[in-house]
Design a protein around this nucleic acid. Structure first.
Length: 276
DNA sequence: CGGCTTTGACCGGCGC
DNA sequence: GCGCCGGTCAAAGCCG
């Protein structure tokens, strides 16, 4: 039993084409799986963020919303300050810390000297008084006290503006406390938690989303089940959908531009390899 | 030894 | 005037 040579060549070409197609489907599959993972993680983070914000706003509303002091803090479950809000002449920030950490230290990039501690009437936890270490050159003072309702939250009240650059190396502000857009207003902010929780690994993600190298495949070997699931997803998604997704990522201000660029770059690679 | 923290004492504003 | 309370002072102790 022998195939004619022409027929044999035809089958080989078809097999090669199918193998090629399979290979690129797998690559596409991997990149989609990665993006799905990112989306899932971001969804979880946002969900936790919303829940935490709601809970915290309920807890602290009675303590913080005194007078015209609008409480518009945004607790960041990912422990990163995300919103650039100028810290004004008299401002209040909220910092989540370990609930078992009894220190009243808020790392804000500046060096402080503690000059007093007092237990106040309305709060069983002591209030610490700090003066900028550059005093009297810099007149800024701050008070730090645990929230009466949630002792894992530190409330730091700043008085005055720094007239120098931060001298600490572990600043938590995304904005300089010097920056002041409106004077004599009280603003509540939430800064990152002193607990060093790794942020979304955006800058360190593998930019090669095709994961084509054997080492990469070995590092993150998907389960058979997940591969099957992703295969189903893959069949339903097309290039336009991915491009739309990438565009939506680019529009998202909180999402790293680097990630969007990486995804776009990867998609471009996939498209060009498909044209071969 | 210098700088920083701790902590009780002191001061001044405010309400009664 | 008195008492309460938040803010500050300053001596003592701690630490690198």
């Amino acid at each position: 039993m022998s195939f004619p040579l022409a027929k044999k060549r035809c089958y080989l070409t078809q097999v090669e084409a199918l193998q090629f197609e399979l290979e690129h489907r797998q690559k596409e599959n991997e990149s989609l799986r990665f993006m799905l993972g990112v989306m899932t993680r971001r969804f979880s983070i946002l969900q936790a963020e919303i829940q935490e914000t709601e809970e915290h706003q309920q807890k602290t509303a009675s303590n913080l919303a005194d007078g015209d002091q609008a409480c518009h803090e945004i607790l960041d479950s990912n422990k990163r300050a995300r919103f650039e809000v100028p810290i004004t002449k008299a401002s209040r920030i909220l910092v989540r810390s370990h609930s078992n950490d009894k220190s009243l230290i808020v790392k804000d990039g500046y060096q402080w000297r503690k000059y007093g501690q007092k237990v106040t009437k309305d709060n069983p936890s002591p209030r610490a008084y700090f003066r900028c270490s550059m005093a009297p050159y810099c007149p800024v003072k701050k008070k730090v006290q645990r929230c009466v309702e949630d002792d894992s939250v530190l409330v730091a009240t700043y008085d005055g503006e720094h007239n120098h650059e931060p001298n600490g190396s572990h600043g938590q502000y995304l904005c300089s406390p010097n920056s002041s857009s409106s004077k004599n207003s009280i603003t509540n902010h939430v800064l990152k938690c002193p607990i060093e929780i790794p942020p979304l690994q955006v800058p360190s993600i593998a930019l090669d989303l095709t994961l084509s190298s054997p080492s990469n495949q070995q590092k993150e070997k998907p389960s058979k089940r997940s591969m099957e699931d992703c295969g189903k997803i893959n069949n339903n998604y097309n290039k336009n959908y991915i491009e739309e997704y990438v565009a939506s990522l680019t529009k998202d201000p909180t999402f790293s531009v680097a990630l969007a660029a990486a995804v776009a770059s990867s998609m471009s690679d996939l498209s060009s390899s498909r044209m071969l």
